Amino acid sequence: MKTILVLFGGCSTEYEVSLQSACAILGHMDARQYAPLPVGITREGQWRYFPGPLFHLETGDWQDQPACVPCTLSLDRGARQLLLSDGRRLPFEAVFPVLHGKNGEDGTVQGLFELTDVPVIGCGTLASALGMDKVRAHLLASQAGVRVPKSAVFSRGADLAAITQAAETLGYPLFIKPVRAGSSFGVSRAAAPDQLPAAVEEAFRHDRELLLEEAVPGFEVGCAVLGSETLTVGAVDEIELSEGFFSYEEKYTLKTSRIHCPARIPAEKAAEIQAVAKRIYRALDCRVFARVDLFLTPAGEIVFNEVNTIPGFTVHSRYPNMMRQAGVDFGDLLHRILQLGVGA
């Protein structure tokens, strides 16, 4: 039996989503093969060993439980131990980071564990950092022969007049995005020049760089990819929007949008999207699992959007649903991910 450190929570804006994903993963791990070692990171960044019941994760009050013990990771290379404040040392074989957004999905945590020679279940440091960085991910996707949106990049402190000129060149409407942020945080859609200054300010609240990006016509599609050497792809899904864009609120409430899985597109186009998703997955050095998001234009053109290296992982999330449509249920999917990660 292998002990897996399941790391959840974190001091990012996607804290609650991480708890929901971790709860689903912990609840579906095969107890005959894996022993979970749950470790939560509080909103303030403190590490806690959490041996408590799953319903505390569901309600979000896990860190208030008396059973939680302050802990830290042994930095001795190859030790693979969790050091508890009460003196205990808990060994483990691999880590499963279930952290969304900054300080978890962006390569920071992956680098920490790779430094100490701990196998990471999921994408490594490089792929995680690239997946969070829209500009560098787009550059690599373009080099791989995939069309990317027209864009312009600016650093904090840039002259607003220069940003305004670039926006005029791209044309309205357009999107203003932080270069590094998750779940559409800091993203705005500007339909006219008077909406640009507030959108720029909001993007710079989340990152030191912003991206002006053309509004690609059509709709968003996604593809789940599983594997390291041999790749398995899930069914392509489609996001139907009635207004606005796929913001953080829309992603988790679906108030004005719907997700169709499989997507309402011809089988040939779905196969083409799956092939492009695999090409991007390889180009960004992804491994174990990730979700590739793209746009499909009215002319049938496939345009790269982004890669989520730790997508939402509840039983109702997009990634497991895509794989379920391809014949891989949640339990089997989790088993395959653990096998791939532990053997990485």
Rank of each mutant, 00 (worst) to 15 (best):
295 F>H: 05
268 E>C: 00
54 L>M: 13
199 A>S: 03
328 V>E: 12
116 T>N: 14
261 C>D: 10
13 T>Y: 12
151 S>L: 03
215 A>E: 14
303 V>E: 05
308 N>M: 03
199 A>D: 08
177 K>R: 12
70 P>S: 06
241 L>F: 11
102 K>G: 03
224 A>M: 01
36 P>A: 04
197 P>M: 06
331 G>P: 10
103 N>P: 00
33 Q>Y: 14
333 L>K: 01
298 P>M: 00
335 H>W: 14
267 A>E: 15
108 T>E: 14
23 C>K: 06
70 P>G: 04
153 V>N: 01
33 Q>M: 12
152 A>W: 07
178 P>D: 05
73 L>I: 14
68 C>V: 11
240 E>R: 13
14 E>C: 06
303 V>K: 04
246 F>K: 08
213 E>I: 00
273 I>S: 04
108 T>D: 14
146 V>D: 13
91 P>V: 12
326 A>G: 10
278 K>C: 13
243 E>A: 10
222 G>Y: 04
313 F>K: 02
235 A>I: 10
279 R>A: 09
17 V>I: 15
65 Q>L: 14
342 V>L: 05
28 H>E: 12
283 A>S: 07
124 G>F: 08
261 C>N: 08
69 V>T: 15
97 P>G: 09
95 V>W: 01
297 T>Q: 12
330 F>V: 04
150 K>D: 11
184 S>G: 09
116 T>R: 05
114 E>K: 08
34 Y>L: 02
111 G>Q: 04
195 Q>F: 01
156 R>D: 12
308 N>S: 08
12 S>L: 09
304 F>V: 01
102 K>R: 15
154 F>C: 05
167 A>Y: 06
295 F>L: 07
168 E>W: 13
226 L>Q: 08
